[in-house]
Design a protein around this nucleic acid. Structure first.
Lengths: 212, 212
DNA sequence: TAAAGAAGACCGACCGGTCGTACTTATTTC
DNA sequence: GAAATAAGTACGACCGGTCGGTCTTCTTTA
């Protein structure tokens, strides 16, 4: 964005390219992503992509950043509208499962797909993914810690462990929903976190059962 | 195997190829796996591979089956030596985390990597992976059901949900351990399942804390 | 008319796959 | 028992196609 709010030259184009790249990468992988196919899907020429990014790797890194923006808009922002504490934790998880269930991306989850693709391949992409994952984990743990500080969760709860368990339910949902029955998977993912929170939270009125 | 126990002609070779393919696929992906690199890593010629498998896809399917065999030998068989019930469930999960922690495969988990790679790509490979995943889920649920029937878990426990939560802890470990701190990840994965079982099992002597 | 950007031909590298050929091994035949 | 046969295995050379990336050309627009 420029200071007056208009899009910088070509920024609209870049965003459109990156949105398509995020979507395609969930099925073909970020590395299997073909620049020719990407250009064709947008009706532009392949060489034109190199006017915006100097190499495929530069485009891949920009694609990760774009996926982060989408994640913040679609999952984090809605959750932050819920009140702090266990309700916000649940809202975050529900928004995540809703995102998977809405089939926004054909491959389900950009980060899960990409992180498994690159977790054993040293390089700039892996490093960037590790940063993103670390930030996501820290955010989850912050939400859990806030719930503890509000007294909605016991003070002796293992913050990092609970955050791990919540994230695990989401990761598993991303994987299973494309190979096994999706509805059952989403139900398990939602009930897993809800049950975990209800087992720990003294005030069950904060966590009604059924659809959130 | 032939009737007298000797390996059939070339079966040793095939197994060696598939073992290398399983390992390489955890870093490059099952699709990104290059037959040229695979052949080079074994000191054989690429064209020789086509004497054993008619196409790359046939080799990929055989690679999946080989990974299943490894999984049965390394994770399922040891767990079946533990007594039925919650101890067997825990033993299975511990064997899985041990397998990841031992860095047997450079990419951590063949199935997690491959399932995320193919979960949005219709075809024979995706179908085979779905079968394997369904069988694994059924096995996990069977172990949970056995624990219920033995009275080690309450009769009103949601078998499928508990199996989901256990598997989720394992899946998340495979992903996080290559991007975040491995030791912390493995500890969370182990404690997550242990805590889940201890919260449900009336007889805590079956589930001692600390290293199993 | 000058500057800019997109288009598309083109490059070397690598991909999966084929082919003809030579070597190895087990079975058959004399 | 030796020779001949047949099948299985491995090899290097090579094919068409696709990849990421470059470069020249052409169109557009101010």
């Amino acid at each position: 964005m420029t200071v007056d709010g208009r899009l910088a030259r070509g920024e609209r184009t870049r965003t459109a390219v990156l949105d398509a790249a995020v979507s395609l990468a969930t099925t073909s992988g970020l590395d299997g992503l073909s620049l020719g196919h990407l250009a064709d899907s947008l009706g532009v020429s392949k060489s034109g992509l190199f006017a915006h990014w100097r190499s495929k790797e530069a485009l891949q890194l920009a694609t990760i950043d774009r996926a982060v923006s989408q994640w913040q808009e679609r999952i984090i922002a809605p959750a932050l509208r819920a009140p702090r504490g266990v309700r916000r934790i649940r809202a975050l998880h529900e928004a995540r499962i809703d995102f998977y269930a809405a089939r926004v991306l054909p491959g389900g989850c950009f980060f899960a797909t990409t992180e498994f693709e690159f977790n054993a391949r040293p390089g700039a992409i892996r490093d960037r993914l590790a940063e993103v994952f670390a930030a996501w984990t820290a955010f989850l743990e912050r939400l859990v810690r806030e719930a503890v500080e509000l007294g909605e969760l016991p003070s002796d709860v293992d913050v990092a462990l609970l955050a791990y368990e919540i994230d695990a339910c989401g990761i598993a949902a991303a994987m299973r929903s494309r190979l096994l029955d999706p509805e059952t998977t989403y139900r398990h993912a939602r009930l897993g976190v809800l049950g975990r929170l209800r087992a720990l939270c003294p005030d069950l009125t904060l966590l009604p059962e059924g659809p959130s």
